[in-house]
Computed example of a mutant assay.
Amino acid sequence: MQTTDDKPEPFLSHAEPVLSVEDVSETVKYWHEVLGFPGQWTWGTPPNHGGVSWHGAFVQFSRDSEAAERMRGQCVWIRVKNIKELYEMHLERKAHILMPLEKQPWGFEEYVVKDLNGNYVTFAAPATSGSESRSEPLPSNVKVLGRTLTAVDYRRLAESVGWSTDQTDEILQQKLDAALFVAVAEDTDTGAVIGCAMVLGDGISFFYIKDVMVSRDWQRKQVGSAIMREVKRWLDANAPQGSLVGLFTGHGLSQFYRQTGFGEAFGMIRIMDHQPNP
C-alpha cells in the first residue's frame, strides 16, 4: 500500500495570466507583431481564445467584451533579460510606452507598455551596477561570412580552444561537408580562420547548431556574437516557419546564446558508445 511519503510532490512549472479581450485575433497579432512574442495560437472560428509565448513567458486571451471593459487596466509583469535591447525593439515597433526604461528603487529596471486593450505590460530586469566585465568592440579587421571550412582550419581552431579529437582529416572533412551552413570568422589581415559555427539538420524541420568556437586570442572581442548573428541571419532566411533550432551549452554560456533568441528547454540525450554495424 502506498504511504503518504510515497506520493509524488506537486510541482508548479509556470503561471499563465488569462486576460479578457474584445478581439482575440487582433490581440494575438499585436502581441506578436508589436511586442515581439514569437509563439502564437488561437482556438475557434472566429477565435474565442488564444495566446502567445516567448521563452518562459506565456499569456492567454479570452474573448469577453463585457469583462474586458470592466477589467480594463490589468497589469502583467514580465521578467526579462537583455531589457535594453527589448526596449529598443519596442521603440522601433511604435509600442505605446507609458513609462520609459528607468531604474526603480526596488532594484529593477522597468518600463511599461499599454496594449491595444488598455492593459499594462511591465517588462523588468534586475538592475546592474555597470561594473560587469564587457567585451571589446568587434575589430575592424574581422569578417564573418558563410563558406566552407577545411579540416585543417577546423583542427587548428579546435586546438586553440582546448578541444582535442582523434578523428582523421577525412572524417573531419565528411562532418564539415555534411553541414547545411558554416559561419566563419576571418582575420582579414592574415586570412586566418579565428572562429566558426556549424548548422546541421534536415533543412526542413530541424536545425542544430554545433561547434561554436572562437580562437583563444580573439575571445571577448565580439567575434562569437558576430558569428551567431550570421547564423541567425542564415536561419531567418532559410529555416521554415515552425522549424526547431537547437543547441547544447553550459549554464555559463546561456546568456550569450539568449542574445540571438535561444531559450532554455528540457531535453534528453544519448551518446552512442558502440561502433556501427558494418
Rank of each mutant, 00 (worst) to 15 (best):
K94P: 00
L145C: 12
G36I: 09
A127Y: 00
I227Q: 02
M268Y: 14
T150I: 09
P47K: 07
D177C: 01
M99N: 13
G162T: 06
I204E: 10
V144A: 06
R156H: 13
L19S: 02
F181G: 07
G107F: 06
D115R: 04
E26S: 12
R72N: 01
G39A: 08
V245G: 02
Y30M: 04
P137C: 08
T122Y: 03
Y87M: 08
F266T: 14
S225R: 13
Q259T: 14
F61I: 09
I227W: 00
S164G: 14
P38F: 02
Q60E: 15
S140K: 12
F207Y: 12
E264K: 11
S254W: 08
F37C: 11
L86T: 08
D189T: 12
D211V: 04
W31S: 00
Y154P: 05
N141V: 07
Q219Y: 06
R70S: 11
S164R: 13
A57D: 07
E66F: 11
G195R: 00
V52S: 03
L176N: 01
H32M: 06
A57S: 14
F266I: 14
V184E: 01
A57K: 05
A127M: 01
S13G: 14
N117M: 06
G263M: 07
V76R: 04
P137L: 07
W43V: 14
F262E: 05
S215L: 05
E88A: 15
Y257T: 01
V142A: 05
Q2M: 13
V18Q: 13
P8R: 12
M1S: 14
E66G: 09
K29L: 10
V161K: 03
E102W: 01
H14T: 08
S205W: 03
W106E: 07
V18P: 06
S131M: 12
M89I: 11
G39E: 08
A158M: 11
R155Y: 09
S62Q: 13
V223D: 02
F123Q: 02
W234F: 07
G195E: 03
D187Y: 04
A178L: 09
D64Q: 09
F256L: 08
I204P: 00
T42K: 11
V144P: 00
P139L: 10
M89R: 15
T188M: 04
L91P: 01
K81W: 10
R155D: 11
L19K: 01
Q104P: 01
G242D: 04
V214S: 10
P10N: 05
L98D: 13
T168G: 11
L244S: 09
D187W: 02
E102V: 11
R93E: 05
A197Y: 04
S53E: 11
V245Q: 08
V152Y: 10
Y208M: 08
F248A: 10
A179T: 08
R72S: 04
G203D: 08
L91I: 11
W163K: 05
Q255F: 12
V144E: 02
V112E: 11
A178P: 02
M99L: 13
A68V: 07
R270L: 13
F256S: 03
P100C: 02
D64M: 06
Q222C: 12
M272L: 14
K84F: 09
S225E: 10
A178Y: 07
P240W: 03
E26V: 03
Q219D: 02
D236E: 13
W106Y: 12
E9N: 12
E102C: 08
D64A: 10
V184I: 09
E9T: 15
Q2E: 13
D153Y: 07
